[in-house]
Amino acid sequence: MARLELSGLSKTYGAVTTVRDVSLDVPDGEFLVLLGPSGCGKTTTLRMVAGFVDPSAGRVTLGGEDITHRPPWRRNTGMVFQNYALFPHMSVAENVAFGLEMRKVPKPEREQRALAALGLVRLSQYAARLPRQLSGGQQQRVALARALAIRPDVLLLDEPLSNLDAKLREEVRVEIRQLQKQLGLTAVMVTHDQEEALTMADRLVVMAEGAIRQVGSQQDLYERPADRFVAGFVGRSTFLQGRVAEPGVFQTEGGLRLACDPAARSGPAVMAVRPEAIHLHPGAEDNSLSGTVEFTSYLGPVLELHVRLSPTERVVLHMPNRGGTPAAGLGESVTIGWPRAAGMVFSEAA
């Protein structure tokens, strides 16, 4: 284990900046997830930690040592790639031992450590097979075993589950998380899948356009997003465009007047509301609005309703499934609402 620190890390290709002034402190044993859309700079950041990309500015420190410009083989990081990157002509055991061989570990020791790593991922019985004889999930576990065999100071995972089907993704992400906890590893993972990130992380880092937008726990990012981007990327929200007309009053472009945080800054703004915060038959303390159901969807544990409030505005609400029949049908007039505190207001003033 080792503490990982990124200080002002940036990467520029000509006139294009892909990573901008990223600073992070990852303590021993933490599982940190970099989350963001494609092209946001998260993979480039991970590759600068691994040594595959040289930073244009900033420092990478691991265990108190500056490794910014060390080649990958001279920094003790274990990397798990999106496409597994297994050698097709090598056996599973040979693939797992490859990093040890590059580090000049004597053959008896590397064979022992390779088998031990395969034991951690429950693949000891497949040591003699070739990668093509394994399933996708097994190949990913081989890639993980190879990274673990070198006893890395930090484990780096680049979209490690994106090539697996949905059910297998659920299984493997639990295995990776349990193994990380069991071994006390410091780990940094990159993903664009918010469910994956929310399930696996100790802390989340949301990135956009090469920069960090917010760092925090799952609860921080979901319940207290720093801006509109985070509110839209982590979880799901309905957005209503408008302005804070006076303290505690948000007025939508369609003319609806809604109670909001009295501390919200006056001027152009957007209100975000989570679907589970909106409900039928609002209480006396809620915002109360009339609308028409224009779409319903059965999502298993929840029922989803799209309610039109005005010609230009609608909201999406989720209701617990207690029998499979929506409380309101298509075209039906309904009254909906949400508490003042559930309407998150983000100023759009320059």
Rank of each mutant, 00 (worst) to 15 (best):
H306R: 13
G267P: 12
E109K: 08
L305D: 01
S23A: 01
G283C: 01
A57H: 11
G8N: 11
P27I: 00
G119Y: 08
G184F: 13
A349P: 13
R228M: 10
F346M: 15
V345G: 00
G337E: 07
A187N: 03
E332C: 07
E5L: 14
D153L: 02
R213G: 06
V154I: 10
Q182C: 00
G78N: 02
E223P: 05
V205C: 09
F52T: 12
L86R: 07
L309H: 03
P106R: 01
E209A: 14
A245G: 08
S237Y: 08
D21G: 00
P106K: 02
L303C: 03
E246T: 11
G64Y: 04
A147M: 05
G235P: 04
A127T: 01
V273T: 02
T335R: 15
V188Q: 10
V273L: 06
V215D: 03
L317K: 08
P311I: 00
A128I: 10
G343F: 07
E170L: 15
E65N: 06
E253M: 11
D66I: 04
G232A: 12
E223K: 08
L221V: 07
H279F: 02
S288R: 15
G36C: 03
A128E: 14
T77P: 13
S290N: 15
E111C: 06
R243L: 06
P37K: 12
Q138G: 02
H279V: 05
L330P: 05
T325N: 09
A231H: 08
Q241N: 11
S333H: 11
Q194E: 10
T335G: 13
V270T: 14
V307T: 00
E170D: 11
Q251P: 10
L144F: 06
Q182P: 00
F229W: 03
P152T: 00
G232V: 14
G331H: 05
L148F: 09
P225M: 11
A328N: 09
V19I: 09
G291D: 01
G137D: 08
L46V: 05
V215A: 01
N163Q: 10
V190W: 06
T252I: 11
N83T: 04
P152D: 00
M90F: 02
M344V: 08
G242N: 04
L161I: 08
P268A: 15
H281Y: 13
P55S: 07
E304V: 13
G331I: 14
G137H: 01
R151G: 07
P275N: 10
E30A: 00
Q241H: 15
G216D: 12
S288C: 11
G235K: 02
N321H: 12
S237C: 11
V244A: 08
P160C: 01
T325V: 14
R177V: 02
L157I: 06
A143P: 02
Q125R: 15
D261H: 03
I212A: 12
A341I: 10
V234M: 11
S10C: 13
A114I: 10
V22M: 12
G58W: 12
G136V: 08
S23L: 04
P72F: 04
D153Q: 05
G137K: 03
L317G: 04
W338D: 01
R265T: 15
I278V: 14
E195W: 10
E5T: 14
F87A: 12
M90W: 00
A277T: 07
L62Q: 02
V270M: 11
D286Y: 05
Q82C: 05
P27R: 00
E285R: 13
A97Q: 08
M102G: 00
